[in-house]
C-alpha cells in the first residue's frame, strides 16, 4: 500500500512538471496543434492549487500560538499580541475589501449603462424588442442613485468632506441629465430618428460615469476601514519593518569591524572594495573624500562584481537544473516518500 502511494505521489510530481517542461521545449505549433493554447488557464489553475494552502498557514499560526496562550506557557503574552495584531488587521482588511468590492461593482454598473443603451437600441433595430420598459428601468435606476446621494445613504454619499458636496451636486446634475436624455431617446426611437439623441444620451452617461468614479474614490478614501487600515500600515507595519531592517546595519558594521581587520590577505581584499563602494555612494559631507570614487565604485561593480557573481550564478543554475530534474523524476530522496521516512 505504501509503495503504491509513493508511486502515486511520484506520478503526480511528474505530471506537475511535465506540462511546463513541454511548454518550454516544444514549438508553439505542432502540426495543427497549438500547444500553449490554454497556458493562461493552466497557470491560473496551478496558482489556485497553491493558494488553497493559505488557510493552512493561518491554522498553524493559531495552533502554535493558541496553545501557548491556553496553557499560559512562556511568552504567552507575546503570542497574544501576535494573534491580536493578526485578527485586528484581518478584520480591517476584510472590511476594506468588502467596501472596495462594493465600490467596483457600483462603478461597473454605471459603466454598463452605456452598454445597456446600445444593446436596447440594437435589439430594437434587429429584433423589434420593446425599448420603452427597458429605458424606463434605466431612468428609474438613475432616479434611485440620485436619491441615495441626496439622502447620503449609499456608497456614492461621501459625508461632509472637502470637495465632496461639489461632486455630489455634480452627480445629481449628471444623473438628471442622463435621465432626461434617456427620456428624449425614447421619444426619438418612437419617431425613428434617434441617431443624434442616442449620441447625446451616451455622452451624458459617460459624464455620469466619470463623476461616479470621482465620488466613489472620495467615499472609499474616507471609509473607516480604509483610514484605520492606513493607520495600521503607516503607524505600525512600515516603521516596524524599516526599523527591523535598519537594525541590521548596526550588526553588519559590528561584524565588519571584527572581520575586516588586516589579519589575512582575503580580509584586505574584502575590505578595500567594500570601503570604495561605501565611500563612492556618499554624495557629500566630510566622508566625501575623492570625486573619482563613484566612477571607481561603478567600475568595481561592473567589472569585478558582475563576472564573479555571474560565474557563481552559472554554477548554481546548472546545479539547480540538475536538482530540478531529480525532483521532477522523483530521484531525489524526499521527506514526501513515506517509505523512506519510516526507515
Amino acid at each position: 500500500m505504501t509503495r503504491l502511494r509513493n508511486k502515486l505521489i511520484a506520478f503526480f510530481t511528474f505530471i506537475g512538471g511535465l506540462y511546463f517542461f513541454l511548454e518550454y521545449i516544444l514549438p508553439a505549433h505542432i502540426g495543427g496543434l497549438e500547444f500553449g493554447k490554454y497556458h493562461e488557464q493552466i497557470s491560473l489553475a496551478v496558482q489556485l492549487i497553491g493558494l488553497m494552502a493559505i488557510g493552512l498557514g493561518l491554522i498553524n499560526i493559531f495552533r502554535v500560538h493558541g496553545v501557548r496562550i491556553l496553557k499560559l506557557q512562556g511568552g504567552w503574552f507575546n503570542s497574544f499580541v501576535l494573534l491580536l495584531g493578526l485578527a485586528f488587521v484581518l478584520v480591517l482588511q476584510l472590511l476594506d475589501f468588502r467596501r472596495s468590492e462594493q465600490r467596483s461593482d457600483l462603478l461597473l454598473e454605471v459603466k454598463n449603462f452605456s452598454l445597456f443603451v446600445n444593446r436596447v437600441v440594437l435589439e430594437y433595430e434587429q429584433k423589434q424588442i420593446d425599448y420603452r420598459p427597458r429605458l424606463d428601468a434605466l431612468i428609474d435606476r438613475l432616479g434611485v442613485l440620485k436619491t441615495q446621494v441626496k439622502n447620503s445613504s449609499s456608497l456614492l454619499a461621501t459625508g461632509k468632506q472637502l470637495d465632496s458636496e461639489r461632486t455630489e451636486a455634480q452627480f445629481v446634475r449628471s444623473a438628471e441629465g442622463a435621465a432626461s436624455a434617456t427620456e428624449q431617446l425614447k421619444g426619438a426611437l418612437w419617431q425613428n430618428n434617434y441617431r443624434e439623441t442616442k449620441k447625446i444620451t451616451l455622452d451624458q452617461l459617460a459624464l455620469l460615469q466619470s463623476v461616479t468614479q470621482e465620488l466613489l474614490d472620495l467615499n472609499y478614501e474616507a471609509s473607516p476601514a480604509r483610514r484605520w487600515g492606513n493607520f495600521v500600515f503607516n503607524g505600525f507595519f512600515t516603521p516596524l519593518g524599516s526599523a527591523m531592517f535598519s537594525l541590521l546595519a548596526f550588526y553588519i558594521v559590528s561584524a565588519a569591524y571584527r572581520s575586516f581587520r588586516f589579519r589575512s590577505w582575503e580580509a584586505v581584499v574584502l575590505m578595500i572594495p567594500a570601503l570604495i563602494v561605501m565611500l563612492g555612494q556618499i554624495p557629500h559631507g566630510p566622508l566625501y573624500v575623492y570625486s573619482g570614487l563613484p566612477e571607481i565604485r561603478r567600475w568595481l561593480l561592473e567589472y569585478l562584481n558582475t563576472p564573479a557573481f555571474r560565474a557563481i550564478f552559472f554554477g548554481s543554475a546548472i546545479a539547480g537544473l540538475a536538482m530540478s530534474i531529480r525532483i521532477w523524476l522523483s530521484l531525489e530522496k524526499s521527506p514526501l516518500n513515506t517509505e523512506e521516512t519510516k526507515q
Binding site: R5, L8, I9, A10, F12, T13, F14, I15, G16, G17, L18, Y19, F20, F21, E23, Y24, I25, V46, I49, G50, R310, F313, F314, A317, G320, L321, S324, I325, I327, W328, S330, S334, L336, T338
Partner: peptide
C-alpha cells in the same frame, strides 16, 4: 499522504518551471 499528492504536484510544477526560469535567466548573461 493525500496532502503529499498535492505537495508533490507543486514540487513538480516548481521543477518544470525552473527549467524555463533558469535558462531564460542564464542565456542573456551567457
Amino acid at each position: 499522504w493525500l496532502a503529499q499528492l498535492v505537495i508533490g504536484f507543486s514540487l513538480g510544477v516548481g521543477a518544470g518551471l525552473s527549467f524555463k526560469g533558469i535558462i531564460v535567466e542564464m542565456t542573456p548573461q551567457l
